[in-house]
Design a protein around this nucleic acid. Sequence first.
DNA 1: TTTCTCACA
DNA 2: TGTGAGAA
Length: 331
Amino acid sequence: MQIKEIANKLNISPRAVRFYEEKGLLSPAKQENNQYRTFVEKDVWRLQTIISLREAGMPLTDIKKALDEIDETNHEQLQYYLELQRTVMMSQWLEIKQVIETTDHMIALLKTKNTLPLEDIYQLAEASKLLREQRKNWKDKWNFDQQASTHDERVSTNTGNYSDYEQALALIVKWVSPIQGEQGLDIGAGTGNLAGRLIELGASMSAVDQSREMLRQCQRKHPDLETKLGNFLALPYLGGQFDFVVSSFAFHHLTTEQQLLALEEMRRVLKPRGRICLADLMHTAHDPIQENSEEYPIMPVLHRWFEENGYMIKQHQINHLLHILYAVPIR
DNA sequence: TTTCTCACA
DNA sequence: TGTGAGAA
């Protein structure tokens, strides 16, 4: 099969086929005499996968890696790449959504004021720029975390910050008290200790974590659990599908601005009456005290967000830092 | 027809 | 991440 034929068959240009070869994604045999490429069935299949992955928005360099895993029939690794791809597309989708919202605001301004005041535009632009930067900062950070693998620190439960771990989980479960068949989401699920307890009570749980190693363990411990790669600022769901969101000992990894963004994200994936329960190390004072160089959530800031967004709050302090915060929409 | 290279967006 | 033109 010559290049034109395979290109026609797959609805791409011959030029693109050569381009993929140049990038090392493909290596068709070449005829001795004239250097014409000859494509066999296997090349067709490979090219088809390239096109599909491209369709999923995957960059060529990543497709190359993914193809290698397919060659090795390494399903697990391939799945990881696909999930990683989904998180990337998810954050792009969120960005687009945000741009649309900004545009809508401008349209609304134009309608009410019959003009676009420069100041308002400027504010809108600034706000959306800020949002983007918050998301980006997170990405940088969690790529770093993945290399460093904070595994051990987390596993050492019942010491230091994790001393009242069990008690905290128990209280979350008690407050959320899921009814049979409710959809729940655990963000920063780790190895799924919290999600596991909620499953026992009949909830149908999904777990999001940024570490695939965690998710792997999580899946092993709780086969009924749905696990997805993702993070607080770009939850891998289209929205409006959970009855409750929980998170334990993860929220404090975000900056204050990111925490508020994360709350928006939680609300996005929740059903209208969806509730939120957080267990974490938090400050009650207004001024953040730098302890262990972590920027712990500041209670009043979270309170304000919940109040502004129509939630009723219940909270309990377990030790000098550890708090449980439970928020239910009013109405 | 095909290949390769250079330039371009 | 591709595409178009031109020479071989």
